[in-house]
Nucleic acid binder design. Structure first.
Lengths: 342, 342
DNA sequence: TCTGATTGAGTAAACGTTTACGTTGATTAC
DNA sequence: GTAATCAACGTAAACGTTTACTCAATCAGA
């Protein structure tokens, strides 16, 4: 008997009718407005609402309040390890604050980023957390007065949009310092560009450390991927080429774990022992560094804190408060593993 | 001058006023209702709507139509590799059909699964795609007439909820057959339980293959993780214990890649060469099998097809159509890599 | 020229809430 | 005894849409 169609759920009106009061009173009770009803009425209403499994119609509520208790999460690709972890924490945090989150994959396409922004606006989201895959945010986003906060990446034109970033520079410093303290004399740096990241933060951290320890900065030891292949392949090739030159090397700091992994595989194939002959540190604390053999030391970012901070800032903005500051930095941390053992 | 507050966007009313027609006409034009306006009016309205950047208020639309063009995606944990890939495809597919998707992490807790279901109902989602982390769906979900489809996992009480599953049994068959064809005589099976999965599908595929090739099924060669540790650790321990017994082994089929990875590391540490002395096949095509050295052969599921099918079924249900069938199976595939080379 | 259909609109109700404003009856203050 | 206060509620408008009804003008067909 699939005759009955739509589930027309019980509404505030039904409850009013059943308990014999007006909708206004029901609304007041259900929303815990301080006064406007007796304790007796309150209990009656609550009992009825409960027994009928009342759940308030968000569309109506949104319409009236111009508030939807939803936010959008725009990111390049949720299947990315780091992003999905961020998504987890953001959803968790937002849920605790009674917000639901829409997920939007831009695939790094400006067009899609734009479209999502409009769609989300239309859906009446109260705010947007954005991990932009682009070097610059689209105009739609930076103009307009939708609360937006950028996390993890920092496009060039954020204007007055608050952002939360990882302290990559210091992370790189820690990695390089670690190699130096472990006795490395000639440390190779493998960098890569990623849209939205402050371009040379990681390289600068590497240079900072070398300088701090009185080492000479040799540009020959700074290699860059050009993005033509997956990180670990390209890194492998870069290292292979570099090794042909017979420069002395006893340490490698790669600006991402996949590259570190590629480097590891390459030097191993050349008969170089890690960590005995050469030590390696990566960046990201991803599966690449964890599963490699030997396990690769790395710099960890803190996705949970990154997410939480982003959410906190957004929540404030959605309540029309000015966030405490425009720029937030989340610390990074060295994780020592086998690849840099003394 | 942060004086102006809310963004009160331009509404259908504004457009009506500006173009000098009624809201009904504007609505008809904007929704492409076949008739009810002249071409001239149509163009005027479209032009105005466009120039003011009109975007329809979804809350109002939802309220009126009892349709929100949103769906919920309930899953245990979006940070899981496989799930986040599914989420990517689902979002992509749904977006093409003008649905936005809410993401909900249950952390395998029944309580949360329930709550999300109610929240989503309240938000008026038109349907729900569910990867339940539980052995049984909560009652809230199986009763009620919200369109729901289960994918990837198959709780015991799906009642009349359609589901889309991977053909795990055949995948396991392929894996085992592959080892047999590569000359393995003594194949160890490492299984694990996961809530919501048909419990022994993978083990049965293993047994099917042994029988098909006239091999004896020796229960001693069937090991099970008890879930006390991460897969790869537990698997490593299981294999280590097993090896002490001096049973002959020249092949291992692990029902997940992490376990295969653990097994690989263990046998390598015992001086056994892979694939020369022993061949290994995993299941999942995850990073574990891809990054291992040697790379581990594995059984791939097809998250894209899984997701697409789930979406298609849900879309049908949301249009009040009866889905073609209740049970959908997505094929699995053997990926040959180094760990099972001849 | 009259009838009936068609076209191009407008009117107004409805969706489920929230909330400003009334209203009533009881209580308090003087 | 009267005025002011207050608690407990009801009334009705409003949020932005969609859509079932109207309605007037035009037009085709006889």
């Amino acid at each position: 008997m699939p005759s009955e169609k739509k589930k027309s759920a019980v509404s505030i009106k039904d409850i009013a009718r059943i308990t014999g009061v007006s909708v206004a009173t029901v609304s007041r009770v259900l929303n815990n407005k301080g006064s406007g009803y007796s304790e007796e009425t309150r209990e009656k209403i609550l009992a009825v609402a409960d027994s009928f499994g009342y759940v308030s119609n968000m569309a109506a509520k949104s319409l009236k309040e111009s508030k939807s208790y939803t936010v959008g999460l725009i990111l390049p690709n949720i299947s990315n390890d780091f992003f999905s972890t961020i998504a987890l924490y953001i959803e968790e945090y937002m849920e605790q604050h009674h917000y639901s989150v829409f997920i939007c994959n831009t695939a790094n396409q400006e067009q899609k980023e734009k479209e999502y922004f409009r769609t989300l606006s239309g859906r009446g989201v109260d705010g947007i957390i954005c991990i932009s895959g682009l070097n610059a945010l689209s105009d739609d986003i930076i103009t307009g007065n939708m609360p937006v906060v950028c996390i993890d990446r920092h496009p060039e034109n954020t204007k007055n949009i608050p952002w939360v970033m990882n302290d990559d520079r210091h992370g790189s410093y820690l990695a390089t310092e670690h190699l130096i303290k472990r006795g490395c004399q000639h440390i190779l740096y493998i960098g890569s560009y990623t849209a939205g990241y402050k371009k040379f933060e990681r390289e600068e951290g590497y240079i900072d450390a070398l300088k701090a320890y009185g080492r000479r900065v040799d540009r020959n030891y700074i290699l860059y991927e050009n993005g033509s292949k997956p990180h670990f392949r390209e890194s492998a090739d870069l290292v292979r080429e570099f090794m042909k030159e017979d420069y002395p090397v006893d340490g490698i700091f790669a600006s991402n774990d996949a590259a570190a992994y590629g480097a590891l595989r390459t030097v191993q194939s050349l008969g170089i022992r890690v960590p005995e002959d050469l030590k390696i540190v990566g960046f990201d604390d991803s599966v690449y560094s964890r599963l490699a053999s030997p396990a690769i030391s790395t710099i960890a970012r803190h996705p949970e804190e990154l997410s939480r901070t982003g959410c906190k800032v957004l929540l404030e903005m959605m309540e029309d408060k000015e966030p405490e500051k425009r720029e937030w930095t989340i610390s990074t941390e060295l994780i020592e593993r086998e690849s840099s053992q003394a």
